[in-house]
Amino acid sequence: MASAKRRSEIHALSIEDGHLRFDSSDGSVTLLCQPGFLAKYQLPSKASYPSKFQVF
Rank of each mutant, 00 (worst) to 15 (best):
M1D: 01
A2R: 15
A2G: 00
S3M: 06
S3P: 00
A4M: 07
A4W: 06
K5V: 02
K5Q: 07
K5A: 07
R7I: 02
R7Y: 05
R7L: 08
R7D: 03
S8R: 12
S8W: 01
E9S: 03
I10K: 15
H11P: 00
H11R: 15
A12K: 09
A12R: 11
A12D: 08
L13I: 11
S14G: 09
I15Q: 03
I15C: 04
E16P: 00
E16V: 08
E16M: 09
D17M: 11
G18N: 08
G18V: 05
G18K: 12
H19N: 13
H19V: 04
H19S: 06
R21E: 15
F22D: 05
F22M: 06
F22A: 14
F22P: 00
D23T: 14
S24E: 07
S24R: 08
S25G: 14
S25E: 15
D26V: 12
D26Y: 10
S28V: 08
S28Q: 07
S28P: 06
V29K: 13
V29T: 09
T30R: 15
T30E: 14
L31C: 12
L31M: 15
L32M: 15
L32E: 14
L32P: 00
L32Y: 15
C33D: 03
C33S: 12
C33R: 06
Q34K: 07
P35M: 08
P35L: 03
P35Q: 11
F37E: 05
F37G: 02
K40H: 06
Y41W: 01
Y41P: 03
Y41Q: 04
Y41D: 01
Q42V: 02
Q42A: 05
L43P: 01
L43M: 01
L43S: 04
P44F: 07
S45P: 00
S45R: 01
K46N: 02
K46T: 08
A47E: 13
A47M: 07
S48A: 02
Y49M: 04
Y49A: 14
P50T: 12
S51P: 00
S51N: 02
K52N: 07
K52Y: 01
K52M: 05
F53K: 10
F53Q: 11
V55L: 14
F56E: 10
F56I: 09
